[in-house]
Amino acid sequence: MTAATPVTTTPPLVADKPSASKIAKKRLSSPWASLAAIVLAVLWTLPTFGLLVSSFRPERAIKTTGWWSFFSNPTLTLDNYRGVFGEDGGVNLASFFVNSLIICIPSVLIPVSLAALAAYAFAWMNFPGKNILFLVIFALQIVPLQVTLIPLLEIFVNIQLTGTFWTLWLSHSTFALPLAIYLLHNFMREIPSGLIEAARVDGAGHVSIFFKVLLPLLTPALAAFGIFQFLWVWNDLLVALVFAGGGDEVAPITLQLANLSGTRGTAWQLLSAGAFVSIIVPVTVFLLLQRYFVRGLLAGSVKG
């Protein structure tokens, strides 16, 4: 009997061995790994957190003590936010905030729609010059914006569009096209060709195939690129500086924040609140739609 018991317990023992060693390994490496991860996470969050705390502290407190002293002597105020939105402070962020929205919406919708059409043509139609055209558009992704800005500005001057939103809508839309076409083309190729063939056999034209068959399947891809483009346009400074640098009428919020940082670099009560007003929209969009954003990133760089 005593000899039989080890025999019956053998199978569980074997199954136990790896899991036991796994547990041992976890005990060895896990606390250090967790600690390292926590240290990194804190390091990454602290800078933003410090400015966020500061944006709610009174001006005098920000300028004479570090934000960490808030915890021993907490005083909260919304004055800084009133300051950046108020007309009398000269910052007037509300109007730049509106400008950013006005710039972003068409700059996302136009390239996404145009790229969807072009990607459809590349993915599902045959025409002479298809491969070479696709290669050229793919290669255009590497053109740095800097190369295009001055001649584009000259064109805008010639057709008298300077100082209007049109310069930003047109340039942001154009710059987005190569990546958008490439990404959407990749997504479209993944749709089984049987679906398209079946629709064609049923007598559907290109327009109805596009809207009835492809569009519903493409929604996640369009969302992924849309978020990508939205964050890019909202956060852009260079294009805005070149085309809207002159007047406050069309300048986005990033431009006003950059100006504030340049001309009133020590006005931390305005800078801290201004920075948070400018990041609230992209951070919200990002947190709500992170899933799509990550998918877009992965499609862009892992597949290559």
């Binding site: 400015l51 924040l257 940082s261 670099g265 990041i279």
Partner: peptide, 19 residues
């Protein structure tokens, strides 16, 4: 937590770090 700075503009990141 680590990914969040990706959604912030370079300008805002510049202000955060200047502080």
């Amino acid at each position: 937590l680590i990914f969040l700075p990706m959604s912030i503009s370079f300008v805002a990141a510049g202000v955060i770090w200047k502080f």
